[in-house]
């Protein structure tokens, strides 16, 4: 397949580039100084585009590539690919579904453990040479704590499955009760927050779920409650969260996402009862490589006229 031209829109994974280079005639769009000349010269050879959630395939790109047969996206979301136009032109589209679920759920449990057991603070304490001066304080047990999950989709369910192994009773809130779920359902977030000790946000960000964690929910969770956010920053009214943490109205928080990333509220830097992560929920080498393998698997299937692995269009 060395003769087949593949256009990569954006540098997304060095492993992906390496693997594409091995198999195809790879063009790197971000290295191209003069786009018009480039397309004039190479468009006829380019039969595939590999994009991601930032740089996909819009109408303009599709029109520049008359030989285009397939868009294989290195992402779950395809909002940067013009799906309708692809369908009209007979261009196939694939994505990498379901690959992030485990990583995000793992990190949610990692944040619960790190926050309750004060792992990062312990690590700072040892590195700061403070151990010799005295004993570190007690921390809070995780096993058996009541975990409330907002959004029982793929990620919420994966979190529940893991927390169950720690003997945590699980309850959840979602727009409607899931009849097949054995977990306890609450029709409002406030009721869920009042009944649990660890509240975790695992729902998609929509108009309805923006600031789903507000002052009322924080107060319902209370001074012994912990908030974990692995969803999106705007799920939480960050000003309210910060003041609750500073005033001791909440026991602690484990946050992978923030309202204005990469800005994190200054007040949180001095707090020992929070764990602050730079949006790393879905980022592991293994997962990115699995996504790259899936991108390549789809291209190879297409060009050897086999069924696509994860077709969307």
């Amino acid at each position: 397949m060395e003769a087949i031209g593949v256009l990569l829109t954006f540098p997304m994974s060095s492993y992906l580039e390496q693997q594409l280079d091995k198999r195809f005639n790879l063009f790197r769009l971000w290295n191209v100084p003069k786009k018009a000349e480039f397309f004039k010269e190479n468009a006829a050879a380019i039969r595939a585009v590999v994009g991601n959630a930032n740089a996909g395939a819009d109408r303009e790109l599709i029109d520049s590539l008359p030989a285009l047969e397939i868009v294989s996206s290195f992402s779950v979301g395809l909002d940067k690919v013009d799906l309708a136009y692809c369908k009209e032109k007979g261009v196939r589209v694939t994505n990498t579904p379901d690959v992030l679920t485990d990583d995000v759920a793992d990190l949610a449990i990692g944040l619960m453990l790190a926050t309750l057991r004060k792992i990062c603070e312990c690590d700072r304490y040892v590195r700061g040479g403070l151990w010799k001066r005295g004993d570190f304080k007690l921390t809070t047990k995780f096993s058996g704590k009541k975990v409330g999950i907002i959004g029982l989709g793929r990620i919420g369910t994966a979190i529940a499955k893991r927390a169950e192994a720690f003997n945590c009773p699980i309850s959840y809130y979602s727009r409607s009760q899931k009849p097949e779920s054995k977990y306890k359902y609450f029709p409002t977030v406030v009721e869920l927050a009042s009944d649990c000790q660890i509240l975790v946000v695992a729902c998609p960000l929509t108009e309805e779920t923006r600031h789903i964690i507000n002052r009322e929910v924080i107060d319902a969770l209370g001074p012994k409650g912990y908030l974990i956010n692995i969803g999106r920053g705007p799920h939480v009214d960050e000003r309210e969260l910060v003041s609750a943490l500073v005033e001791g109205r909440l026991a602690g928080a484990g946050l992978d996402v923030f309202e204005n990333e990469p800005q994190v509220p200054e007040e949180l830097f001095g707090l020992d009862n929070v764990v602050l992560l730079p949006h790393v929920g879905s980022g592991t080498i293994e997962t990115r490589n699995a996504m790259a393998d899936l991108v390549i698997g789809n291209l190879e299937a297409h060009f050897s006229k086999k069924p696509l692995l994860t077709p969307v269009v």
Binding site: L107, I109, G110, L277, T284
Partner: peptide
């Protein structure tokens, strides 16, 4: 907790932030 922290770099990433 320690295994997850080492693999996902929780304490190191908290330090980074």
């Amino acid at each position: 907790a320690l295994l997850l922290d080492v693999l996902r770099r929780v304490s190191a990433a908290d330090r980074y932030v």
